[in-house]
């Protein structure tokens, strides 16, 4: 403590540094962040990192095992698929598709869901009921089935699959946002903002929304992985990315008849999905801890 007559004030650390300080506490989250960073680098620099073109077929080397197995070659470290395409290149390029699926699906679903949930939370009860019953109808369908129907209507392609998954995931955000809004809206700080003259938009997005973000961020991280999984499932069913796109789910689907003969063809895309999803979930957890001021020490 300095003396009271000349109170000096320590400089406030930058927001980013402060965020990093708290994020670092959670080891799993940091690990998740590194894996996610590698995933993003693969997605961004795919064509330069990949040793071969993902669609190039080495006809004489079909179903080549990974390098460390007998018969493997370091020219194709993770082996080749039934058409002789290099697995490593396909996985690296596949990261790009999965990443885009995740980012686009989560942004569409979250922004739409938060907006609708906010409106439902602040709306008069009849409008709230209308919105929530529509969301219940969407939730009542098995999500993959609904996505399938939507893709069937829109036509099978990765873009349409992303739109379908975003629509299917949206009600979760709506429910989550509305529930948080309803509980936050009761609190006195919202009333005092209203007494201070805050308008509806300010109440919604400046006062209430930041206090609802923690569960939404976790949901965002979780549905990033759900989106990747659903896109993979749609690809597996032939309704998502179309061959020869090296999308991880589509790769799994193409390789399923070789499970017993060539384990690497199914294992590596599956592992890629698993590790990515796990890393994102870990990161989401750390994100929540770091963004919640209640968990901070003074």
């Amino acid at each position: 403590m300095t003396d009271a007559t000349a109170p000096t004030e320590p400089a406030r650390p930058g927001r980013l540094r402060e965020f990093w300080f708290y994020f670092r506490e959670n080891r799993g989250a940091v690990f998740g962040l590194w894996v996610f960073a590698a995933f993003v680098i693969c997605a961004a620099l795919g064509p330069w990192l990949a040793p071969y073109d993902p669609a190039e077929q080495f006809r004489e080397l079909t179903l080549l095992p990974p390098a460390w197995q007998t018969g493997g070659s370091w020219a194709h470290p993770l082996g080749t698929d039934p058409l002789g395409r290099d697995m490593l290149s396909r996985l690296i390029i596949g990261a790009r598709y999965s990443f885009f699926v995740g980012v686009i699906v989560v942004s569409i679903a979250a922004s739409g869901g938060i907006l609708i949930g906010m409106i439902a939370g602040f709306a008069p009860s009849w409008l709230d009921s209308v919105i929530m019953r529509i969301m219940d109808v969407i939730l009542a369908f098995p999500s993959l089935l609904l996505a399938l129907v939507l893709v069937a209507i829109l036509g099978p392609s990765l873009t349409n699959a992303m739109i379908a998954i975003a629509i299917v995931l949206q009600p979760h955000y709506v429910r989550l946002t509305r529930a948080s809004v309803l509980s936050e809206k009761q609190k006195d700080y919202v009333t005092s903002a209203r007494v201070a003259g805050a308008g509806l938009l300010r109440l919604m997005f400046v006062t209430v929304l930041p206090n609802c973000l923690a569960p939404i961020i976790v949901q965002g991280a979780l549905s990033f992985s759900t989106a990747i999984l659903d896109a993979a499932a749609l690809g597996f069913l032939g309704m998502g990315a179309q061959p020869p796109t090296p999308e991880w789910g589509t790769m799994l689907a193409e390789a399923r008849e070789f499970i017993l003969r060539a384990w690497w063809v199914v294992t590596f895309p599956g592992l890629a999905i698993l590790v990515t999803v796990l890393a994102i979930n870990l990161m989401g957890d750390g994100l929540r801890d770091a963004l919640d001021p209640k968990l901070k020490r003074s």
Binding site: K187, Y189, S192, A193, V195, A196, G197, K294
Partner: peptide
């Protein structure tokens, strides 16, 4: 209301709920 509001302010009972934690 909008113009008169600034002249009347309130302090609530619960100091834990009346300040925005964010």
């Amino acid at each position: 209301w909008p113009e008169l509001r600034t002249d009347v302010q309130i302090v609530f009972q619960d100091p834990y709920g009346s300040l925005n934690p964010r």
